[in-house]
């Protein structure tokens, strides 16, 4: 439940403290943090996979960031690529530094409505960031879902992030995890090719009936994967993704993320491919 002072002013960030920083891949780091006020920490626990937050960096401004942790984990963190002025400022923070966070916002993935289904996660590059939350969440509620598959593509082996998690998933009996890279490097004995090529690998069998496919990645990867999935018999409703847009408020007011009949921040960011097509813009 929102507390009165937070509910009154939806634009007001709460103070957060950076705990530690972990290098993921080139220009991408994971920032572990906590809210300074225990009441904020408590209120934040109920976020859903696929939701996002608005993060304030003093002197740089505010930006939306997706939440890679699952609410079933004990820690809160962001994984962020250095790409603009706000992300640059975040990358410059040291443990103990403070910043602002408000949220969570957005609809999130309706994980409850997927009970009894197969889950197929298809991620390209840092598209794994929002999907990480769902994967960890689904594995924490393993009995609720049928088969769980992860297909992950990266440019090179050096671009594979969340390595510990990847190892864990590869070794886990409860999940089938397939990796591929566009360009192999010395020491890489795995698959080479775009992520869609994994679907046709010998020994890989992707369930289509009663299956939800989560697809996140760069626009070009998204288009090809959609085509592959459609070819395999996935309906537009059974493919879901998240949209990224420039956002200033996160609460459906500033207008920047409004496409078609939706405000991505409040009606999304999670949409089925059918919805995305009707909204009429590129991902």
């Amino acid at each position: 439940m929102m507390r009165p002072e937070v509910a009154e002013n939806v634009y007001l960030p709460r103070v957060a403290v950076l705990d530690r920083v972990v290098d993921e891949i080139q220009d991408v780091k994971t920032f572990y943090w906590h809210f300074e006020d225990p009441a904020d920490r408590e209120a934040f626990k109920s976020f859903r996979p696929g939701q996002f937050v608005q993060v304030t960096l003093f002197g740089a401004g505010e930006m939306p960031l997706s939440l890679p942790p699952s609410p079933t984990e004990g820690e809160t963190f962001f994984t962020v690529r250095r790409v603009g002025s706000c992300t640059e400022a975040l990358h410059g923070l040291r443990p103990g530094d403070k910043f602002g966070v408000r949220g969570p916002y957005g609809n999130g993935f309706p994980m409850g409505s997927f009970h009894g289904k197969n889950l197929v996660f298809v991620a390209g590059g840092i598209g794994l960031i929002p999907l990480r939350s769902c994967i960890v969440y689904a594995l924490a509620h393993r009995e609720k879902y049928r088969r769980i598959q992860i297909f992950l593509g990266a440019r090179t082996p050096r671009d594979l992030m969340y390595r510990d998690k990847l190892l864990e998933w590869e070794r886990s009996a409860g999940v089938e995890c397939y990796l591929t890279v566009d360009r192999a490097e010395e020491g890489w004995a795995g698959n080479v090719g775009v992520v869609g090529s994994l679907f046709k690998k010998p020994g890989v069998e992707v369930p289509v009936e009663d299956t939800v496919a989560f697809v996140c990645g760069p626009p070009v990867m998204f288009r090809f994967v959609i085509r592959d999935l459609a070819g395999m018999g996935f309906s537009e409703e059974s493919i879901i993704s998240t949209l990224e847009r420039y956002m200033k408020c996160g609460v459906g007011k500033c207008g920047h993320c409004c496409i078609g009949v939706a405000y991505v921040c409040v009606d999304g960011p999670v949409f089925s491919y059918r919805q995305i097509r009707k909204l009429g813009e590129d991902i």
Partner: peptide, 14 residues
């Protein structure tokens, strides 16, 4: 029309 943007502007040290 309702659209707005948000900027932070420096008004002093920190």
């Amino acid at each position: 029309c309702t659209c707005f943007t948000v900027r932070d502007r420096q008004v002093g040290p920190n």
